[in-house]
Design a protein around this nucleic acid. Structure first.
Length: 372
DNA sequence: GCTGATATTAATTTTACGTCA
DNA sequence: AGTGACGTAAAATTAATATCA
């Protein structure tokens, strides 16, 4: 899937979040993945993952035990309605503005909160350059570059960061400045670390805005081509490598969640089958109990019971019954009522698609016995 | 306010695979 | 057809950070 990158020339937009219909036909790879996760963006808080999980579990619990496996709806092709309210709560630009204009780094974006923050951060860095990977980096030694300044301004909880946070942000920003370039697009190695100070890696915490933006992008496409990666990195003031890593981790989380859902489903299947097995065993015991003291059945030939799938009526006939010759496909149950023996269970062959529809209740058997 | 346990997640490493010259 | 370089995804892991009791 190739997406054109718009740099303000009016060409197709790099991240057409709102142009889903055009892309639906070209998402064969994503569709083959076959899982989607319903990720409604929470309007507040930062426990998105936990909320997602709880929501999924609640949904699972409400579902029937043998429903098809729940699919996590995470991917762009899923018809997840995006309410205007939730989007507006973050004030994301991609729903109300031409995203291409956001992608143009030099164009100030006037509008709601997060965009202002992004723009402010950009202006705070004294010197900017676009590195090989297209990411904007600052040459200012201690400038609160890019996302780090946003970390300093507003942490994940939305509170103002304290001294410790601020210092951390400065340190991270500093290190980030030193590791000036993405590794030429390669995902191997750790050249960044070599350029940084010391051998301890500093960990960036993405802001809510950045995370939400990446989430939104992930809904559109769970993998990125280089152009998309560069565009995203540019928009978020991150290095392309960081965007790439985020998507890798996001895919891993998605898979993990889907695995959990699948596991839960299989567990329910197992429980249901165990219960069914228990019920059948009990039924079998009841039948044996009825058979044992009554030699009447020993005189009967093997009987073929044909069950009509539509009306679920049972037609009883002898072994060479002709009734089945013209009958439509049906559930056939052959019961060999041979003399009860130690291995009586083996003689009783039940091929029941609907095992709970065993035609004869004990009362019916008693009545038949009395009639004869 | 400090501390330890735990959860989350950014980042790294390794491996494998596909593409291309 | 074989080969090496390159890019990327997946999986496993590490480690920084946040949260909570």
């Amino acid at each position: 899937m190739e997406l054109a990158l718009s740099l303000g020339d009016g060409s197709p937009k790099g991240f057409p979040f709102l142009h889903k219909s055009e892309k639906m036909s070209s998402r064969s790879k994503d569709e083959e993945l076959g899982f989607c996760m319903g990720l409604g963006r929470p309007s507040e808080g930062d426990n998105e993952g936990r909320k997602e999980e709880m929501l999924l579990r609640n949904i699972n619990e409400k579902r029937g035990s043998l429903d098809p496996p729940l699919q996590l709806d995470l991917l762009p092709f899923s018809p997840v309605p995006r309410t205007q309210t939730s989007n507006s709560s973050f004030g994301f630009p991609w729903l109300s503005q031409n995203l291409a204009s956001v992608a143009v780094a030099t164009e100030p974006v006037s509008s709601c909160g997060p965009v202002k923050v992004l723009e402010l951060n950009r202006r705070l860095s004294r010197v900017e350059e676009v590195d090989e990977g297209g990411a904007i980096s600052s040459l200012s030694p201690i400038s609160p570059v890019s996302s780090f300044h946003m970390d300093y301004t507003l942490n994940r909880n939305g509170r103002i960061m304290g001294k410790r946070d601020f210092e951390g942000a400065i340190i991270m920003g500093h290190n980030n400045n030193n590791e000036s370039e993405d590794r030429g697009g390669s995902s191997r190695g750790s050249d960044d670390e070599e350029n940084g100070s010391g051998n301890s890696r500093k960990k960036l915490r993405l802001t809510k805005q950045q995370s939400a933006f990446l989430e939104e992008s992930f809904k559109e496409h769970c993998t990125l081509n280089p152009k998309q990666k560069l565009a995203l990195a540019k928009q978020l003031n991150l290095r392309p490598r960081q965007v790439e890593v985020w998507f890798q981790n996001r895919r891993a989380r998605t898979k993990l969640k889907q695995t959990e859902v699948d596991c839960e489903y299989l567990k329910r299947c197992c429980e249901a089958l165990t219960e069914e097995n228990r019920r059948l065993q009990k039924e079998l015991q009841e039948l044996r109990a009825l058979k044992a003291p009554q030699p009447f059945y020993m005189q009967l030939p093997a009987t073929t019971l044909t069950m009509c799938p539509s009306c679920e009526r049972v037609v009883s006939s002898s072994t060479s019954a002709s009734a089945t010759a013209t009958a439509p496909p049906s559930t056939t149950m052959t019961t060999n009522v041979a003399p009860a023996s130690a291995n009586g269970a083996a003689n009783t062959t039940l091929s029941l698609a609907k095992s709970n529809l065993f035609p004869f209740s004990p009362a019916q058997i008693q009545a038949q016995k009395a009639a004869s």
